[in-house]
Design a protein around this nucleic acid. Sequence first.
DNA 1: TTGTAGGCGTTATCAG
DNA 2: CTGATAACGCCTACAA
Lengths: 331, 331
Amino acid sequence: MTIYDIAQEAGVSASTVSRVINKKKGVNKQNRILVEDLLKKYNFEPNASARGLVQQSTKIIGIIMSDIRTAHHAQGAYFMEQELKNYGYNCIIINSGFSDSAREESIRTLFSRRVEAIVLVGSTFQSETMKKAISEYLGDLPVIIENGYIDLPNVYGVLADEEHGIADCVRLLHAKQKRHMAFVNRGDTPSNNLKILGFQNALKELSDCSTPPIVRLNTQEDEWDASYSATSGLMKDYPDTDSIIYATDFLALAGIQALKDGGYAIPGQVAVVGVDNSVYSRISSPRLTSLDNKLEQLSITCSDMLIKVLRGEKVPNKMMIFSNIAERETT
Amino acid sequence: MTIYDIAQEAGVSASTVSRVINKKKGVNKQNRILVEDLLKKYNFEPNASARGLVQQSTKIIGIIMSDIRTAHHAQGAYFMEQELKNYGYNCIIINSGFSDSAREESIRTLFSRRVEAIVLVGSTFQSETMKKAISEYLGDLPVIIENGYIDLPNVYGVLADEEHGIADCVRLLHAKQKRHMAFVNRGDTPSNNLKILGFQNALKELSDCSTPPIVRLNTQEDEWDASYSATSGLMKDYPDTDSIIYATDFLALAGIQALKDGGYAIPGQVAVVGVDNSVYSRISSPRLTSLDNKLEQLSITCSDMLIKVLRGEKVPNKMMIFSNIAERETT
DNA sequence: TTGTAGGCGTTATCAG
DNA sequence: CTGATAACGCCTACAA
């Protein structure tokens, strides 16, 4: 079924049908109603490919992330899609994993689809390879990075200030008289490295703290098990430890379990801080103090920026959302 | 950049370029190499809209779910996308929420995109409204429902056998000498109703059990809080209760917390069973016995079916994946 | 092996 | 207000 079929049955030309579909004026009432009735009768929907071809605009946005099963990636995709829908855009979502080649492939695929912008979700897209891929394959197509940034004119980044956020956590622990902190994280990502940096820098300012162990978990091992056993190991190797910051709430939950099983009082003997202010922080017992890195805010800001960019409005290439601490029972 | 631009620079016609792009034979080696070099030089990617138009095939699959932030929906989307990618398909994902109108709208949007199939994720799509929308708007476009089924020739459903799964849970509890069971769930979905049915039917066979309370939580209230307080209330109103089945692991986690806070021994005084065999069941303490409804298997089966349908192979309209119990420490 | 011509479904321009 | 007509970029007979 095409607009020609409708036109024929209505006894008008295809142009008239097109005008009715697009709600343009310059169609007499009789014809308009006649055509509208037929459109309804056949539940006609114009072919988006044809439209995209002639209008040079597909109204599609591409979203690439390593794995949508990760809660905050799903959240990013959700807000993106919800917002863009209001402007007539649909989203093609691709799970790229972490390999450079798969990511390049994804970018090419989306370019082939003639998407009007690409969103990269996660700090791991902040790499030289991606920079090269973007400038080579995408030209000046707008690219938005959630929690990352690449220095190119068509790339827009919204970052969580996790570095200073973690530094705040360190200061909080210090105020609670903790002097032997530790940091546990998993995966060599820009986001993690920033957290470690914030951790180390904040401690530099504090002269009365011990040199802290920084544990990086093996990404091969199960996340929960790794954090659990690393925490037990940590308490054995550094018995003075009186506080642990985990790079995510999930890791912290495993850590709390290990601490409870080891008979440590939380926060009396060992205080615990997580990151993400996720559902995990609420369901833990005791309830987990967590750095709220405003991931939801980040997603919303990204889609706002995207809309503006698509409209041709001027927006800054780089923005930062400040984190703050949601203090609960583990500190 | 179009195939004409490439053709011109290569001194050949557009058809030759098209042939090279599509790896068709009947192009002399010289020209093929010449064109391939230019394609690489410009990182040329053919316009998918134009291709879709002429070939009447967009290579796009539409996926509708209420909310991708729900872990098992994200999982469904993930496996779908991963598998379909291998066959050159991309996925447009739409979060429809639960309203009928939004779901109809999503279906129309995807039809307008001329997707080659639509996947509906979740039992809530199994409704009369959806049936009507599908036959009205989609004609004979293939529709796959994950954990649901609608009786139409072009609709394929893959179901989790949660009814018998829950019945098995009841029998497990009975074997553990539990005689006063309760069931807690949230939301009036086909999946939940099936679980309740399985619960009730299994108890009918068991003459020595008390008539069990079935608690349906208010969906307005926070999920965790609702389950927590409902569990406390349950133990107050039915002090005999010696076992509780929760419709999801998450609900069970909140329940376990309430039971622990209430001083009940698990599973000694009260046994607990969840559903989904999700990450929550592993991180709970004590570790949660959970009905594994094989959601991952379900997703994979759906995408397998989809691929076959797209290929024109014959597949059954309705399939069922059997659930089994992953027994841990709470029973 | 190659190129020309026509058409996929829609929109936009331009006469009438 | 209306209807030809020409794109949009690609593919595929068909002809050379």
